[in-house]
Write a protein that binds this DNA or RNA. Sequence first.
DNA 1: CTGAAAGCGCTTACAG
DNA 2: CTGAAAGCGCTTACAG
Lengths: 306, 306
Amino acid sequence: MRISDEMVKHIRAIIKKTGYIPNRAAASLRTGKTHVIGLIVEDIANSFFASMAKSVEKVAAKVGYRVVYGSTENNDSRGNDLIQLLVKQVDGFLITPSIGMKTGVQALRKSRKPLVLIDRYFPGEEIPFALVDNYGGVSKATECLIGKHRKNIAFVNVAMDQIQMKERERAFVEVMRDRGLFQKKWLLRLPYYQDKAQYEPRIRNFLQKHPEIDAIIFATNYLGMFGIKALKDLDISIPEQVAVFSFDDTDLFRFSSPSISVISQPVQEIAAQAMRLLLDQMGGQTKKTPEEGALIAPELILRSSV
Amino acid sequence: MRISDEMVKHIRAIIKKTGYIPNRAAASLRTGKTHVIGLIVEDIANSFFASMAKSVEKVAAKVGYRVVYGSTENNDSRGNDLIQLLVKQVDGFLITPSIGMKTGVQALRKSRKPLVLIDRYFPGEEIPFALVDNYGGVSKATECLIGKHRKNIAFVNVAMDQIQMKERERAFVEVMRDRGLFQKKWLLRLPYYQDKAQYEPRIRNFLQKHPEIDAIIFATNYLGMFGIKALKDLDISIPEQVAVFSFDDTDLFRFSSPSISVISQPVQEIAAQAMRLLLDQMGGQTKKTPEEGALIAPELILRSSV
DNA sequence: CTGAAAGCGCTTACAG
DNA sequence: CTGAAAGCGCTTACAG
């Protein structure tokens, strides 16, 4: 505060007149800070990750950061390449890692690069994460269906070892077991397809094989999308014959008729918590407490499908 | 080619062993190139722009570029801020400009910053652009409806001075005039709302006021989304009472029942052309021919709604 | 307190 | 042809 207001005003005027913009590459070289955050998601075209990108952009802009993004498409080597590509160009990472990115992510962590996992995490790895309470969400949805006197409830999942998928499934299985309703045949695990349209016939088959099913929970938005298509193709009425829940909220679920009940992820909240955990690390000063994970409560949105 | 293969191999081995990654900030300072592209869109959470981001990411990665993004939300000053923020940090811009970004974009162009407009452009400004043939798309859709003996066709647009919106409307008006079918009262222009849900009651009102309407073309994906909701709320059957077209393809239109016919933008093609025009400028060598715009043909996808 | 100088890690023009 | 040196534009430790 040793500089007079007048001088400040004068300098600002010159900055404006000459159109001076600091060269961040130079500043970056000198300080080692880029003021850029790397956002690595599964697929930026998926509405969940697209909203995430929007929220991250907003929170980051507020604290003077820009965001570069990359999609892994659940391809491990692509994901690791993205990390390598960006590691020197960003101050920190927000990553939705595929399973095979574990070593890459661990290396990043060991090198003390600020890093927060989103949407999933590696159990036992002490890497900060921000994600929805997958277990809580599905268990609530399952209980809701049971409360509506559905007994033959199916769960359609994608067969990936990722923790978020396992947690969703575990919640379903445990609640069903508790009530003595669990049947293994009502648990459908499908491979991860790049081409999501392949889910539709698979789900249709499953439904035909198990006409006793009176409710389904879809573990992801794309399973829900194609699952509903399959139900409609088979002229199975929602919710009369089969009640439906899907994870993730999308326009499709909101506007579908009947509208689909969902376990909604509070994307803004997740983004805000992730950025908070990241900024904690990037501040890099006197953090005594080790950073932990943030588990954000999902919102059960009841619509016409239950 | 004066270096022996052996030496190349030796060096590469050391690079790998030591984990050397060039510092791009340093290279950038020296060369003035950042190998980053700035993607400024209206709203990265909108499915059209999200797919665009995905395609841009892909094409850019192939030629060694990273992508930073920003959403204007049709706010002029936010858009101009984004340009200022990114101008020194990117080698080139892909921008969907709002009207008020015209001066900012012109300044960018004058400063010879590589720049391609997408989704819209400024007529008479000689700034390269890549976008769908809006006029052609809507005129085809209009003719398709007339071919199916619809006569009282409405057009729902968002009241913006942006060229892509005007072109879509102009196509509709001219085709209808040609056939002697045009009625001004069937042209609905709604303000640009941040909160898209506001479109639904407005469209519902319009439909109630004009029960004679037997077909509608919605000029954007969100107008289509809320327009269909309005139709369903009023128990107007699609396509029996009212046939429907919407601009832009989305999951919602594909999965809606009935499925909705659309004027689909070939996003990958637009991204590829935009990048081509951008790389032409960034190459910066012997381009004699001034860069021009790329007008990409839309695809009319006929589904159950017509 | 203040101003000049060093140096971040590259690339490339240039001297030898 | 090759290797050393200059310099991109900042920030900050340091001499005065």
